[in-house]
Computed example of a mutant assay.
Amino acid sequence: MIGAPAAALAAWALAVAVIGTEPTVRMGGGTQPVGPVPVVVTGLLAGLAGWTLLAVLERFTSRPGRIWTIVALVVLALSLSGPLGGAVGPTATLVLVLLHLIVGAVLVLGLPRR
């Protein structure tokens, strides 16, 4: 579970180094940069939610890994609406979509095999 926020933070740091600024999102009437803390916290929360769902599925279903993977992929697809609709500029959109995909990939590939 810790791999998702770690991978996202590494990707965020690389992206910030390459583009020279933090990605920015629209918040209310203004904009806000996406720094390392929100990247890590979001990755941790996604991992915790996924782990909790998997634990519940393991207790009550016969195919928890398959069900969890399908749910996780649907949630990942829906989560992309955030950066696609709220990022400021194409570079921020690309960086934030990649962060979502990285967290999703680490969780989808890592959690059901624990």
Rank of each mutant, 00 (worst) to 15 (best):
V74C: 09
V71E: 11
S62E: 06
P83S: 09
S79K: 02
L76W: 13
V88C: 00
S81G: 14
L80H: 02
G65E: 04
A77G: 15
T52W: 15
S79H: 04
P64M: 08
I67Q: 04
S81Y: 14
I67P: 02
V75C: 03
R63E: 13
T52P: 07
I67W: 07
P64V: 06
G82N: 06
G82R: 02
L73K: 01
P83G: 08
W51S: 15
T52Q: 11
S81E: 12
V56C: 09
L84C: 12
L57E: 01
L78E: 04
L84Y: 11
L53K: 02
R63Y: 10
V56Q: 01
F60D: 12
W51T: 14
P83V: 03
L57I: 06
A72E: 03
G65K: 00
L53D: 05
L80C: 02
S81H: 14
L80Y: 08
L57W: 02
S62C: 02
L78V: 08
G65Q: 10
G82V: 13
V75T: 03
E58D: 15
P83R: 06
G65N: 09
R66A: 15
F60R: 13
L54N: 00
I67Y: 05
T52V: 13
G89Y: 01
L76Y: 08
F60W: 14
S62A: 11
A87P: 07
V71S: 10
P64R: 02
F60V: 14
L54W: 00
L78A: 14
I70L: 13
A72G: 09
L53A: 10
G86T: 08
L84W: 05
A77I: 14
L76M: 12
S62K: 05
W68R: 05
F60Y: 14
G85R: 12
I70A: 15
E58F: 02
L78C: 08
A55E: 14
G89I: 03
V88N: 00
R59T: 10
L57R: 02
W68D: 07
R59E: 15
V56F: 10
V74Q: 10
S79G: 14
L76E: 08
G85Q: 13
V71R: 06
R63D: 13
T52H: 12
R59P: 06
S81N: 13
R66M: 12
T61H: 07
V56D: 05
S81I: 11
L80A: 07
L76Q: 05
L80Q: 03
L57D: 01
V71W: 10
R66C: 04
A55I: 12
A77K: 06
G89M: 04
G65T: 12
R66N: 08
V71C: 11
V71F: 11
L73W: 08
S62P: 01
